[in-house]
Design a protein around this nucleic acid. Structure first.
Length: 686
DNA sequence: TTAGGGTTAG
């Protein structure tokens, strides 16, 4: 017996119209589509399946859409339905699934510009260059090699995958370049870290008479951020205001980021406060601007403000807050952020690395190591952070062991890995190993030494007294050494009393007219060590003329969760008298044990007893005395110093650790020193 | 009926 079917099923044209008008906002529901689906099956109306599948895709029933399409009689008319499914998979944030849909296309189907464009966008999101190549070959074979949408999508894949050479090739070959193609190139150069070329693209775009829009302006602002060209960024900002262009949240955020990253904090705050709507990313741009520029307290204040404004801090904000904690050694807050993450968020790699780095910089090598051991998925950045952590804490052998362990995982080390490794070996005085791995880095791993690597190797050699060898190495190099490299060599000369070579280097440094006050101070210290007081006066004048002041040395210590800062000769601390008493008590004990003040570290032409007194009031000693007065016996003290610890303080703290029987950890501008029982972990490779 | 935009770890 034949089934009675509703009459409307016979009117396929009308049905197609109804199905194509459905969307996620229309009253058509998945249930209605499912009922219709059943009727179509019974009435053998499979030729309507593509329309039904597209309707399923539009209302978000993607699995139903996919299976309906798979059961469709394949024909050219299926393509809009396949496209709808691809677009829906892409929108749902599953580019992998979208690409699977593309691959599942029946051979009889003829993909069009939309299909290829959607497939390429999925490849871009996946960062899969090989998959993109397969799509490209099919698209070009199908005659879409000059299609503006397909080509723009291809540009996007290439720039997302760092293949800017390919992007340029495709872009140059495009017969028609619209504003999307131009802005894709601008953004591509920015993300490749080539902001100058990004700005070049932008000016070529304007020369071609292509109208600029908000999207391309974001790329331009980012390029200005990277080049530090805030003048140009500000003129873009001005044009926005003058022309009444729509200042959306993305544009405003990139402006906040540009101003904050380049130290224009007031303008950054102002733009931020004027935003009619802010989201987590806008907050993060401002917070990270402060955190990355040594304004930890402002960053942490903003982080708290964000939390109380009703916005839940996301991983970006937490990362910046952790960075700020690390900067000033705020362990208590750092620990509580770690706890918050464990309770509330997924512990992904970036956050893990930020927490690890925070523990490392706050002096807790053990916590950093424990965390590293616990994290199961480790990317290269995490490995590099752990290697750097061992290095700064003076554990060169551990750093080397980690590096070898990394090589066994198959992850390829990069320039940063070697920078951390070489610095670790240098700090631990592992000269032979350092020379060996520097050589292998170039020959086996094919990594060109950067300035950073050269500084490490020169430092490694110079620190061990091999200043002549370091000098010869520099002479054999193809390029002229930069100031930081000369500085590494000069510090080696100063520390090893190779004053003659030191003076030659000092001359070379002065020839390049350094403005950095720290560099001038080092040069002046060398001349002071050589007792060339005329030269010292000359350099002091240069320092004065350069307009900036020498950064004053300060030390931070966290006691019972509160941070205290100490500056040399600062008498404003409420416990100042007690601190002085503690220092003189310690000095008395130290002398009994054989301590002799190393007054050569006072680079002023003063009487010996004045020099001795100056040494004993260095900020790290004030902080230690304060820590001893306010913590119970046996408590470990962690001091964060902004400059390097001087050789005399290094000696003194060894004695102090013995006298008070405490572990004292000092982080200076370069590394950590763990003092315990009269010795330092750095084995006096200070 | 499809392509391009902001922050965050070593």
């Amino acid at each position: 017996m034949r089934m009675q079917l509703p009459a409307f099923l016979a009117d396929h044209r009308r049905l197609r119209r109804v199905l194509s008008s459905s969307s996620s906002s229309s009253p058509t529901t998945v249930a209605a589509l499912t009922r219709l689906h059943a009727l179509l099956v019974v009435s053998s109306s499979q030729n309507l399946f593509p329309s039904l599948a597209a309707a399923y895709a539009r209302v978000g029933a993607l699995d139903a859409a996919e299976s309906t399409l798979a059961a469709s009689p394949s024909s050219r008319s299926c393509i809009p339905a396949w496209n709808a499914l691809l677009a829906a998979r892409s929108r749902a944030g599953s580019p992998g699934a979208a690409l699977r849909v593309f691959r599942a296309l029946p051979s009889s189907a003829r993909p069009d510009s939309t299909t290829f464009t959607l497939a390429l966008t999925a490849c871009a999101r996946l960062g899969d260059l090989d998959a993109a190549e397969a799509v490209r070959v099919r698209a070009f074979a199908a005659g879409y090699g000059r299609d503006v949408f397909v080509c723009s999508a291809l540009l996007h894949v290439y720039s997302r995958c760092g293949a800017m050479g390919d992007a340029i090739r495709v872009f140059d070959g495009m017969p028609r370049k619209d504003h999307v193609a131009w802005s894709t190139m601008v953004a591509g150069f920015v993300s490749a870290g080539r902001p100058v070329e990004a700005l070049g693209m932008y000016s070529r775009m304007r020369e071609h008479g292509v109208a600029e829009d908000e999207v391309v302006m974001v790329g331009v602002i980012q390029a200005c951020t990277l080049t530090g060209n805030t003048r140009m960024g500000a003129s873009v900002h001005g044009r926005f205001l003058r022309h009444g262009m729509r200042m959306d949240v993305v544009i405003a955020t990139s402006l906040v980021d540009m101003y904050a990253k380049n130290g224009h904090f007031d303008v950054a705050r102002q733009v931020f406060r004027m935003m009619p709507y802010r989201n987590a990313v806008s907050w993060n741009a401002l917070i990270s601007g402060f955190a990355q520029n040594g304004h930890a307290d402002e960053a942490l204040d903003l982080f708290r403000e964000m939390s109380t404004s009703g916005l839940q801090p996301d991983s970006g904000a937490l990362v910046s807050a952790l960075l700020a904690c690390a900067d000033v050694g705020f362990l208590k807050l750092g620990k509580s952020i770690h706890g918050f993450i464990l309770r509330r968020l997924e512990f992904q790699c970036i956050l893990g690395t930020a927490v690890l780095d925070m523990y490392s910089k706050c002096g807790s090598l053990e916590s950093a190591r424990k965390l590293f051991n616990k994290l199961s998925s480790r990317d290269l950045v995490l490995w590099n952070a752990m290697i750097a952590c061992c290095g700064t804490h003076g554990c060169g052998h551990d750093a080397l062991a980690l590096f070898q362990e990394l090589n066994e995982t198959g992850i390829k080390p990069d320039h940063a890995t070697f920078a951390s490794l070489l610095s670790a070996l240098s700090h631990s005085g592992l000269v032979e190993e350092g020379k060996f791995w520097f050589d292998r880095m170039i020959t086996e791993f094919g990594i060109e030494p950067t300035e950073k690597h050269c500084v490490c190797v020169v430092d490694l050699l110079a620190r061990s007294g091999l200043v002549e060898e370091a000098n010869e190495m520099l002479a054999s190099m193809h390029t002229e050494p930069t100031i930081p490299i000369w500085v590494a060599l000069l510090s080696g000369c100063l520390n090893n009393k190779k004053l003659e070579l030191g003076e030659t280097i000092a001359k070379k440094i002065l020839e390049s007219q350094p403005e950095d006050i720290g560099v001038l101070a080092l040069v002046s210290n060398l001349y002071a060590a050589a007792k060339k007081w005329d030269k010292v006066r000359e350099i002091r004048k240069l320092m004065k003329d350069s307009g900036s002041k020498k950064v004053p040395g300060y030390s931070l210590i966290e006691v019972h969760g509160t941070r205290h800062a100490f500056v040399m000769e600062d008498q404003s601390h409420p416990q100042h008298q007690e601190i002085l008493k503690m220092i003189s008590k310690l000095s008395f004990e130290m002398r009994k044990m054989g301590y002799v003040p190393r007054t050569e570290f006072v680079y002023h032409d003063l009487d010996e007893d004045v020099k001795e007194q100056l040494l004993s009031y260095h900020s790290e000693r004030l902080a230690i005395a304060f820590g001893l007065l306010n913590t119970s016996p046996g408590t470990r003290l962690v001091i964060i110093k902004n400059l390097r610890v001087c050789g005399d303080c290094h000696d003194a703290i060894k004695y102090i650790s013995k006298i008070v029987d405490r572990e004292i950890v000092v982080r200076d501008a370069k590394r950590f020193h763990h003092f315990k029982d009269g010795a330092c972990s750095c084995g006096d490779y200070w």
